[in-house]
Simulated assay, not measured.
Amino acid sequence: MRYEENNESADFLSFRLSSELYGVAINDVEEIRVWESPTPIPRAPYFVKGVINLRGMIVPVIDLRARFVLGDCQYLPTTVVLVLRSTAGESDRLMGLVVDAVSDVVSQGESELYPAQGDSVVTSYMHGVLNVGDEVMSLLDTEALLNIGEILKAE
């Protein structure tokens, strides 16, 4: 099974959370921003770090390491916020995801996309896994990640 959009091989932006490699469809990436502390939101779930102003739009910021329970969150010089866009119906949704570091743009090419295995916090957000060199990259579903109803239910 191949991850296909418009019958073309997909490209993904790969990034790191702890020692794990993840990816999102490059078409869903609106912007990559240097880490800066967002404005906190009172009574938000522990993994919602706050909001940022992106050219006049208020964008919520979620720490994926905290969301996926991958250990303590340390904000280092390599830490970035991936601003992703998801189109739900007729409206666009933007959200920032804090990740440890951006790695590279990866093309699926002829590689096979394998279904997600196991039962973890991450599995419900995955399209599947893809071999990238000697590593396995977990491909995340942007629409599932940006589903605010699920985010609020998680707390």
Rank of each mutant, 00 (worst) to 15 (best):
M1C: 13
Y3F: 14
N6G: 12
E8R: 15
S9Q: 10
S9M: 08
D11G: 03
D11N: 13
L13V: 14
R16M: 15
L17W: 05
S19E: 15
E20G: 07
L21H: 14
L21K: 13
Y22D: 03
Y22N: 06
V24S: 05
A25F: 06
A25S: 15
N27I: 07
D28S: 10
V29A: 03
E30A: 11
E31P: 00
R33V: 08
R33Q: 11
W35T: 01
W35M: 07
E36L: 03
E36N: 07
S37I: 01
S37H: 05
T39E: 08
I41N: 04
P42S: 15
P42C: 02
R43M: 14
A44L: 08
P45T: 10
F47E: 09
V48R: 01
G50T: 04
G50Y: 07
G50W: 02
G50N: 05
V51Q: 08
N53Y: 10
G56D: 15
M57T: 14
I58P: 01
I58T: 15
I58K: 07
V59I: 13
V61I: 10
I62F: 11
D63S: 13
D63C: 11
L64T: 05
R65C: 00
A66T: 09
R67K: 03
R67T: 01
F68S: 00
F68C: 01
L70G: 09
G71W: 08
C73Q: 14
Q74T: 11
Y75H: 14
Y75W: 09
L76K: 11
L76P: 00
T79N: 03
V81H: 00
V81F: 01
L82P: 00
L84E: 03
L84V: 06
L84A: 04
R85D: 06
T87H: 09
S91C: 14
D92V: 08
R93K: 07
R93N: 00
L94F: 06
L97P: 00
V98T: 05
V99K: 03
A101K: 07
V102R: 05
S103H: 09
S103R: 13
S107P: 05
Q108W: 09
G109A: 12
G109M: 14
